[in-house]
């Protein structure tokens, strides 16, 4: 699905974005190192550029390298302006949280030579109207940086364009779960969610209808759990889902004590249930204290509402 549903009025938003055009994106920046032969040589080796003119002059396309702060950033902080930070934050707020650099254009009025010290500043040149690309919907933001050397002589311009966008979802991928209610996402005590993909979604659709669905091979009739696209007995890809009776026995179990599990309250039992249909599944046990669960104990299916989003098939034990 292509997303064109940023939750804001596009005209109103575009007006606010346009207001940043012409404002400063960076000011008073100074190159971390003077233009120097070792960096030129490393760059040429990495790029495979054997032009004999280097390193007497710097390769022109190294222009941006002289303005970069390195992994630790510029000592004394970035030259980036508050206005540019605000613009990016505004785009984040409307859902354009992803960024991709799309292209850059450079001009080189004169070559840089070892010993040159660069300074730079940048301006927000333009913000595009809303655009939808294969990546998603968002806005192209173009900045233009002027790089100077010595007494302020212009040695290069660097026009840099990014797309700030809200990522499109891949076509036909399962839709993400609905946005959780406030308070739930950040709650570390949430149980792990089921891991749902196209091979097992049918099982969880069944759970939502309070049905415990097992696969059955349409060629050799072998019942199958966990859900998989093919039969482990004969390899057939043809299958149907059928509803389990819900009766079974405890085939094995454990009692969880340690480490502390935020979503759970140890000690608690987890069981491996053998269903009447002959397949097994891991599940929780209700109705019996953790220290009374035993192998062979008969159990009956029920559905446990864990939280607003999660319902699980569990099994009620009958204490002997």
């Amino acid at each position: 699905m292509t997303r064109d549903d940023l939750d804001v009025d596009p005209d109103e938003l575009y007006g606010r974005l346009k207001a940043y055009e012409g404002r400063t994106a960076a000011s008073g920046g100074t190159g971390r190192d003077p233009v120097n032969e070792p960096m030129i040589r490393h760059w040429c080796e990495a790029m495979g550029d054997t032009n004999p003119a280097y390193p007497a002059v710097a390769p022109p396309t190294m222009l941006q390298a002289w303005t970069m702060g390195g992994l630790a950033g510029h000592p004394g902080g970035s030259a980036r302006s508050e206005a540019y930070d605000e613009l990016l934050a505004l785009l984040d707020d409307v859902g354009c949280t992803s960024v991709v650099a799309t292209d850059c254009e450079q001009e080189y009025p004169r070559p840089l030579r070892p010993g040159d010290r660069v300074t730079f500043d940048a301006v927000i040149e333009s913000v595009s109207p809303r655009k939808t690309t294969r990546l998603g919907t968002g806005y192209f933001v173009t900045t233009r940086m002027n790089v100077r050397a010595g007494d302020g002589e212009l040695v290069g311009t660097h026009r840099f364009r990014i797309l700030k966008y809200a990522p499109a979802r891949p076509k036909n991928a399962p839709k993400p779960e609905p946005a959780p209610k406030p308070g739930l996402t950040a709650d570390p005590a949430r149980r792990p969610r089921p891991v749902i993909n196209r091979d097992n979604a049918g099982f969880w659709e069944g759970v939502a209808r309070h049905q415990l669905l097992i696969q059955r091979c349409l060629d050799c009739a072998t019942p199958r759990f966990p859900w998989l696209p093919g039969c482990g007995a004969c390899g057939s890809l043809r299958w149907e889902a059928f509803e389990a009776s819900g009766t079974g026995t405890v085939f094995s179990y454990v009692v969880m004590h340690h480490p502390p599990f935020p979503a759970f309250d140890p000690p608690y039992a987890v069981a491996l249930i053998e269903l009447a249909e002959g397949v097994r599944m891991v599940s929780g046990i209700t109705g019996v204290p953790y220290d009374k669960v035993r192998i062979g104990m008969p159990v009956e299916l029920e559905f446990l509402r864990v939280d607003e989003e999660l319902e699980l098939p569990v099994f009620r034990g009958a204490e002997a």
């Binding site: 992803s98 960024v99 991709v100 990546l135 990522p167 979802r169 891949p170 991928a173 399962p174 993400p176 149980r191 792990p192 969610r193 089921p194 891991v195 749902i196 993909n197 196209r198 091979d199 097992n200 966990p226 454990v254 969880m256 480490p259 599990f261 979503a263 759970f264 608690y268 987890v270 599944m281 891991v282 599940s283 929780g284 864990v306 999660l310 699980l312 569990v314």
Partner: peptide, 25 residues
């Protein structure tokens, strides 16, 4: 394409049958 929603893998799905019930380690 950066970080985006991705369908869970077969490996994740296999473990997913146990985790919600608290069989975690």
């Amino acid at each position: 394409s950066g970080v985006e929603h991705r369908e869970p893998s077969a490996e994740g799905a296999a473990l997913g049958w146990s985790l919600p019930f608290g069989l975690l380690t």
